[in-house]
Design a binder for these strands. Structure first.
Lengths: 294, 294
DNA sequence: GCAGGGGGCCGCAGATTTGGATAATGCCGA
DNA sequence: TCGGCATTATCCAAATCTGCGGCCCCCTGC
């Protein structure tokens, strides 16, 4: 029987396109990834990848196999959720992730939650990227915009987007007064990994052919890019209005209207601690609506 | 992240009840199994097994986790089937398993199959135990009696059971003439692993309290036990009548009537080579009925 | 067409893991 | 209560795997 771990490496290579990138993602050396993958091919008796200028690309058979390997992986994630949930349930820890700028504004709500449930504890986990709830990186997320199919949750508030620029940028390049002006400004948008986000299509519609000064993989990245002054870009008012560096240059964009949601993984939705957190947040919905209004 | 392979060891221990037995099953040393399992517990942060007189027993949490681990394992088996099917499909190999005594009688049918499909090749694989089709140990099985839930197939013939003894046994202990005589004979039956097989309950009904001289884990084992002369026991006529050492001492037992089936795994049922084999066997059903009539 | 960068492959030394032997443990029955 | 038995736990040498560095290849952009 082949080494079950080798599927990890196979998937990492499939996703990152090269052993070196896969190694980085797995915190392993490139040689190990390359050798494990070769070993997997040997055991299976067929080529899974094909050498290519830019690294490795899956063979047809590799593509065939990929969904199977992903099924294994998702069963593993299920275990990890089950395990970490089991240990966490006792300590009553709820790990919440949300865009960094709203943490502080959420604090009073969490304080009331702690008062109401003294033996539960909320902990914010944040990172420069979207944490993957299905991998157990957090239990609950506050998010604006497109929701991951795998997650369940409910709408908490409307999410309003507007176009922002940094004070610095406005000083140097002036302030766009109408949507049409955007064409002549440097814009900041999402990169390919967010290709189904409405921001991308909206930018193409409203400012076709405009310079894209920076592309980002997350809303937060987008915000930092705008703050740095490389260009103007659309942001949720909830996280941008509170920032002293940012100026709202063009009013709410109806096309970008979305919802703020409280999300979790279906496996966790019914656990006592997560269920209590959900119920509490819903009961505080009005307060949160005000908070997220900016 | 924990070592995916450790789930193998965990499952083996869960199934075999001790690290030593698990090690044997996995062809690994006991120390390795013990250490890997300890490592898994360390990574997970909870005890999975509890020491017990006879080895290890799963803790409550271990039992909780077991179905998750089994889900991973079955995804792995899916991969193995997919892989071995892919490589096998090209060579057109169909691996068939059946009770050893009927191989020879099946040979002419297989010969006709080869004539009909020159680029397909049938290979018999046999073993002292039931091969596990879901692990890819064979593609297709001829089997009499209770069918594994996971497999699909169709009925090929009736399976008739009767009570047999070896010539040697009859010489030494006489021949039971009526069912009621069985109580005073040494009987051969199945062991716990076949607890849901009708033979067991039937023996208890027809000869309550009789000595059980040997217990077996498979029909073939049962036959060898009867041949060895340790006792009398029920066997399918299809495999016992052809044996010169065995004598049918009590006529067909209607309570033990079952079906001969041609079985395969659902994943394989629609592959060209397996589908062709199925269709061919079905078209030869009458011939096979005669063969299996004994 | 040449230099630079990204990536795969290979050999070696050090780290980790394995198997086998052996000591320790815990139950069972006398 | 005391061996006997089956199994776990631990130790050490041997096998295996890992990371590192070097080398080569191929693409790209100047």
């Amino acid at each position: 029987m082949f080494d079950w771990n080798d599927l990890k490496y196979f998937l990492a290579v499939a996703r990152h396109g090269s052993t070196i990138a896969a190694g980085k993602a797995l915190k392993l050396s490139q040689s190990t990834v390359q050798r494990r993958l070769a070993e997997l091919e040997r055991r299976i008796g067929r080529r899974l990848v094909q050498r290519h200028a830019t690294g490795y690309r899956l063979t047809e058979f590799g593509e065939d196999l990929r969904p199977f390997a992903e099924r294994v992986e998702s069963s593993i994630h299920e275990i990890e959720r089950h395990v970490s949930d089991g240990t966490r349930d006792q300590s009553g820890l709820i790990r919440v992730t949300c865009p960094e700028p709203i943490v502080q504004r959420l604090a009073p709500v969490i304080e009331r939650f702690h008062a109401r449930y003294p033996n539960l504890r909320v902990e914010f986990v944040m990172s420069d990227r979207y944490l993957d709830l299905s991998k157990g990186e957090a239990d609950v997320a506050f998010r604006s915009g497109d929701t991951d199919d795998e997650l369940v949750g409910r709408k908490i508030a409307d999410s309003v987007w507007a176009v922002y620029a940094s004070r610095d940028y406005i000083e140097r390049h002036g302030k766009p007064e109408r949507m049409e002006d955007l064409v002549s400004h440097a814009l900041v948008g999402f990169d390919e990994s967010m290709r189904n986000h409405r921001v991308l299509t909206w930018l193409r519609e409203v400012a076709p052919g405009a310079t894209i000064a920076a592309r980002n993989t997350s809303v937060l990245g987008l915000m930092y890019a705008v703050k740095s002054g490389v260009g103007v870009g659309p942001l949720p008012t909830a996280i941008a209005d509170g920032d002293p560096d940012l100026v709202r240059v063009l009013g709410p964009v109806p096309e970008l209207a979305r919802s703020w949601r409280l999300l979790t993984h279906p496996d966790l939705r019914r656990t006592p601690r997560v269920a209590k957190f959900f119920d509490f947040i819903v009961s505080e919905r009005d307060v949160i609506k005000t908070i997220l209004a900016g």
